[in-house]
Every structure is written in structure tokens, then in C-alpha cells.
């Protein structure tokens, strides 16, 4: 990506990245009962990193991601598959939803559940797979 990005995009990229990531986490947690969920949230987060990539360069985007996108796919997939197993241990069918409501200070009642674990898994897989493709294409572009 040797295209000179505009200074406005550069400046905005710094602020937009954290904002969009927070928005994606908001979407992730909002899911299940209201519009939102792991897939949409993952796309928003991946789009945020892709925007960052356009405004900076590939190294900066990789740095902003901290981990290799392939690790995200693997970890997310493991998480998603494992979320089906607690139900089986209790003698129910795989992927039966289990809910553990917890009272937390400040936040009130928070419902931890297996669908939440599944959604986090999906979130990571989507970020990982979209960015694997985008980064690979961007690197191929840079080489040529």
C-alpha cells in the first residue's frame, strides 16, 4: 500500500480505531436478545482494522492487532466448539443454552451463558478470517 493517504484520514484513523473496537464489543454483548451478535461485531472490528490499514500501512495494522490473525481463527473456533460441551456434560443435547446469572457490583445482574461464549468465538473467527484475507491481499499488492 504505497498510496499516500490523506492527512485527514491519518488523523481520524487514530481516533476511529478504538471507537470502532468499543462499538464492536458493544454490538457483541448486545446480541442474542437484541440486534447485534458475534458476526456483525466481528465485521465491524475487522473493518476498523482494515480502515487503520488504509490510513497507515500494513506493519501498523499488524501491530494494532497484536496477534497473528490466524491465532484468532484457531482460538475462536476452539472457543465456539467448546461452548457446546458443558450442556453435554449435564446430560442435555449439545449446544443447549446454559445461563449463569451473576450479581456484580456496579453492573447489576449480568448473565453469563454458553451462547455468549459461542458468540465471542464467532467474533474472533470473523476478525481472524477477514483480516487474514485482507492482509494477504494487501501484502501481495505491495510486492507487485
Amino acid at each position: 500500500m504505497k498510496i499516500e493517504s490523506s492527512i485527514i484520514l491519518r488523523a481520524a484513523g487514530h481516533f476511529l480505531l478504538p471507537l470502532l473496537i468499543i462499538f464492536s464489543i458493544f454490538l457483541l454483548l448486545r446480541g442474542h436478545n437484541e440486534p447485534g451478535g458475534g458476526f456483525i461485531a466481528g465485521l465491524v472490528a475487522a473493518a476498523a482494522i482494515a480502515l487503520y490499514l488504509f490510513s497507515m500501512d500494513i506493519q501498523a495494522a499488524r501491530k494494532a492487532l497484536y496477534v497473528d490473525p490466524r491465532d484468532l481463527i484457531g482460538g475462536g473456533l476452539v472457543l465456539a466448539v467448546l461452548s457446546g460441551i458443558p450442556a453435554a456434560l449435564q446430560g442435555k443435547a449439545f449446544f443447549t443454552s446454559l445461563w449463569w446469572p451473576v450479581e456484580l457490583p456496579l453492573l447489576g445482574e449480568v448473565k453469563f451463558s454458553t451462547p455468549l461464549i459461542f458468540d465471542i468465538g464467532v467474533y474472533l473467527v470473523v476478525i481472524g478470517s477477514v483480516l487474514t484475507i485482507v492482509l494477504n491481499l494487501a501484502e501481495a499488492e505491495e510486492k507487485s
Partner: peptide, 22 residues
């Protein structure tokens, strides 16, 4: 029976694990 889901879950889990250990 649990054995019904295993042929699907085992390769999924194995795939996820080998991806995690890429």
C-alpha cells in the same frame, strides 16, 4: 445418544486445535 454428535464435533475440535497450533 452423545455418540451421534461426536463424528461432527471431533473433527471440528481437531481442526480448531490444529489451527490454534499452526
Amino acid at each position: 445418544s452423545v455418540s451421534l454428535a461426536l463424528p461432527v464435533l471431533i473433527p471440528l475440535l481437531a481442526g480448531a486445535l490444529s489451527l490454534a497450533f499452526w
